[in-house]
């Protein structure tokens, strides 16, 4: 019996449960990007997305987006049932065209930020966030 209890603890230790990205949601995410950019080209870089590598809990994941010279930033969680997370529109008195918030991620997935620049061009950044399953307390 002791063997079983210990083995439950030992075997369970350190295993990250990685949820696969549902393909349907991914397609929906790409559609949302299409409608945001109107099919225009998207450059890599020009927008920074900061997110933890491993989220301690998928319910509250802190992220930050930053795109100097952007008028708008769209944030998508490509693996969520509905990928839309938020759209940040910067006004005349916005200082840095950046914002931080806390989001919900349904599982390990790619988070994407698309920035619309003041000159009409688009930029993209993404980050993979591992959403883990906790131990006993869940």
């Amino acid at each position: 019996m002791e063997l079983t209890r210990r083995s439950v603890l030992q075997l369970g230790a350190g295993i990250l449960v990685v949820a696969s990205v549902p393909l349907k949601a991914f397609a929906a995410g790409e559609d949302l990007i299409e409608s945001f950019t109107g099919g225009a080209d998207i450059a890599e870089g020009g927008v920074t997305l900061t997110a933890p590598e491993i989220a301690e809990n998928g319910n509250t994941v802190p992220i930050e987006v930053d795109a100097p010279g952007a008028s708008e930033i769209l944030v998508l969680a490509m693996g969520n049932p509905t990928p839309n997370v938020a759209t940040f529109k910067f006004g005349a008195l916005s200082a840095s065209h950046s914002a931080s918030t806390r989001i919900r991620l349904a599982g390990t997935q790619e988070v994407v930020a698309i920035a619309k620049m003041q000159d009409g061009s688009f930029a993209r950044a993404s980050a993979t966030v591992k959403v883990t399953i906790g131990g006993c307390g869940g």
Partner: peptide, 30 residues
């Protein structure tokens, strides 16, 4: 968020924003 009638930031939130929504951003103070 507006300052003296001018807009600083305008955020559209979807269901993926966590309970007790939190935002941090920067503004110019003219």
């Amino acid at each position: 968020c507006d300052f003296n009638g001018q807009n600083v930031i305008d955020i559209t939130l979807e269901a993926a924003i966590s309970t007790n929504p939190y935002f941090e951003f920067q503004a110019i103070v003219p």
